[in-house]
Simulated scan of single mutants.
Amino acid sequence: MGKIRKTYDIEYKLQAINLYLEEGMGAKSIGKELGIAYAIVERWINHYKREGIQGLEEKRGKAKGYNKGRPKIEPLSDAGKIQRLEAENAYLKKLLALKKEMILKRKR
């Protein structure tokens, strides 16, 4: 099973960033004060430095860019299902014929 990761809201992250920027505290002391790992605080600081407040927004589970992520598939109609199955049968018949051919060549 996967780990369940806790998410923090932007206000909480900004509180940590303000402690770093305005109070001059280090990531380890901020982590101790807020009760979180210092690596998380360092990550927030780096994201904030690179992207500003947008860097603190939650990005997990969001597709990036156009046409990214799992495509939305509409259920096939009966005719579409039949067409797909016929194509699958034709493919399997060709595969079986090739396999038989290879077995015959080995026996020779």
Rank of each mutant, 00 (worst) to 15 (best):
S77F: 03
R60H: 13
P75A: 07
E58K: 08
E86W: 05
Q83K: 14
R70V: 07
P75K: 05
Y66L: 15
A79Q: 09
L85R: 06
A79D: 13
K81D: 04
L85W: 03
K62D: 12
E58Y: 08
L76C: 03
E58H: 13
Y66C: 14
E74P: 05
G61L: 00
G80I: 03
K64C: 12
S77C: 03
K64D: 06
A63C: 10
G61C: 01
I73L: 14
L85S: 03
A87Y: 05
I82W: 04
K59R: 06
D78W: 15
R70M: 09
D78Q: 15
Q83T: 15
K68A: 11
K81V: 05
A79K: 09
D78M: 14
G65E: 03
R60V: 07
E74V: 11
K62L: 08
G69L: 01
N67F: 11
K68C: 08
P71T: 01
L76Q: 06
G69E: 02
Y66Q: 13
K64R: 15
K72H: 14
D78R: 14
E58P: 02
N67K: 14
K59S: 03
A90F: 04
R84G: 04
Y66A: 15
K62Y: 07
K59Y: 01
A79I: 09
Y66R: 15
P71K: 03
K68W: 09
A87H: 08
R70Y: 05
R70F: 07
N89P: 06
D78T: 14
N67I: 09
N67Y: 13
I73D: 10
P75M: 04
K64E: 11
R84E: 08
N67R: 09
I73C: 06
A79T: 09
R60N: 13
N67T: 07
I73W: 10
N89V: 13
A90R: 05
G61Y: 00
L85T: 09
